[in-house]
Design a protein around this nucleic acid. Structure first.
Length: 372
DNA sequence: ATAATTTGACCGTA
DNA sequence: TACGGTCAAATTAT
């Protein structure tokens, strides 16, 4: 396990070194290819242009990989990275009072003045031919569905199955995108404090999509054999089949400061060249968990595309989403699983965390950080 | 029988 | 008052 981490660390460094090297080459190229006037450059050095382009591409790719690795890392383990304050993006809706769902007593709302603890929005884009389940490793129970103003599709409300049993307050909202019915916008609120948070790899009982009542609304309906609980054997869980496209979006930084990363994952199964940024280890261990949710969709097809906006690259570093607004917590994406953590990662995460302001006001228990 | 989902009602906020 | 979020009884699935 630690070796895995070391490997990743090394891989990361390799990528960065490579990027540096390539940048150097590019630099040389530029220097040598612009001897005198560059005015006619378009005609003169087309070949060197190509070379430059290639170099640039490589550099970018290299850095992307590196960043992705970091990004991933920052989200694995305790997944401390996605600290986010809500700002429900879809629908102009303001994410309000989803405070502590557990506390349904009115007095609770006294204190509430802003937003819920934290939310994380994820866009899950299922490609064609999928059987479209939105498993995310947790089991959820639907507790409501609402038609949302301005949205074509209703929004589904889910809470952790173990809410009553273990007092896990994690909830999520799932909404089919207006523009692209293949896209589901998932907003996670709260984090898991239940045991599944630490054993997420077991099965994926989630029936999110199924439960996401598109039923009565847009009349596509009941003929779809409601893919019920597809308890999948662990092995298949991580075979993201098909056109699974995942986007993580920053709720706050919607400006898309960072372009979305897009890369294809060489069907994770075989052709794992070294350009596969998802090492087997990552997949086995934490990749999916790292990205808190909603990714794994065992579907089937050919092009495995993962896209995400690396919103975690905040100004202060990777894996950190800029924590703005006062208060309202920052919570930690539950993903927990210290089971797979690594010392290295922990160090990094701790480091990152040190830079964050946590609003200790919020009644967080830090459960899964050490849950077992 | 138990668990999960559906769905209308209710509540707090803006 | 409208809207989004949650509750909970009724219904359906396992």
């Amino acid at each position: 396990m630690e070796e895995n981490m070391m490997c990743e660390q090394v891989g990361l460094i390799d990528e960065l070194m490579q990027g540096k090297e390539l940048a150097k080459q590019l630099c040389d190229h530029l220097v040598s290819s612009t001897p005198s006037s560059s005015s006619s450059s378009s005609t003169t050095s087309s070949s060197s242009h190509i070379t430059n382009e290639v170099l640039i591409e490589k550099i970018l790719s290299s850095y992307e990989k590196a960043l992705s690795m970091l990004n991933w890392k920052a989200n694995v383990g305790e997944s401390k990275a996605y600290i986010k304050e809500s700002h429900s993006s879809f629908t102009n809706g303001s994410p309000r009072s989803v405070l502590d769902p557990e506390v349904k007593h009115k007095d609770v709302f006294k204190k509430r003045k802003t937003k819920p603890n934290w939310t994380e929005q994820v866009k899950v884009c299922l490609g064609t031919g999928h059987d479209g389940s939105l498993e995310d490793g947790y089991s959820w129970r639907k507790y409501g569905q609402k038609d949302i103003l301005g949205a074509k599709f209703p929004r589904g409300y889910f809470r952790c199955t173990y809410r009553n049993v273990q007092g896990c307050l994690a909830t999520k909202q799932v909404q089919k995108s207006d523009e692209d019915p293949m896209v589901y916008e998932i907003t996670y609120k709260g984090r898991h404090t239940c045991t599944q948070a630490s054993h997420k790899n077991k099965a994926f009982p989630s029936k999110t999509k199924m439960a996401l009542g598109e039923n009565r609304h847009q009349t596509h309906q009941k003929n779809q054999p409601q893919e019920k609980t597809e308890q999948q054997p662990q092995e298949t869980i991580f075979s993201f089949g098909s056109d699974l496209e995942v986007k993580l979006e920053d709720l706050e930084n919607k400006e898309d400061i960072f372009p979305s990363f897009c890369f294809t994952s060489p069907s994770l199964s075989s052709e794992n060249e070294n350009n596969n940024i998802f090492s087997d280890t990552m997949i086995e261990n934490n990749f999916l968990e790292g990205f808190s949710p909603a990714f794994i969709s065992p579907t089937s097809s050919e092009s495995n595309i993962f896209c995400w906006s690396p919103y975690h690259f905040g100004t202060t570093g990777v894996g950190q989403s800029v924590q703005t607004s006062e208060s309202d917590i920052t919570d930690i994406v539950s993903a927990s699983t210290s089971a797979t953590n690594s010392p290295i990662m922990d160090l990094e995460l701790d480091f990152l965390l040190e830079k964050m302001d946590f609003d200790t006001d919020f009644p967080i228990n830090t459960p899964e950080l050490c849950s077992s």
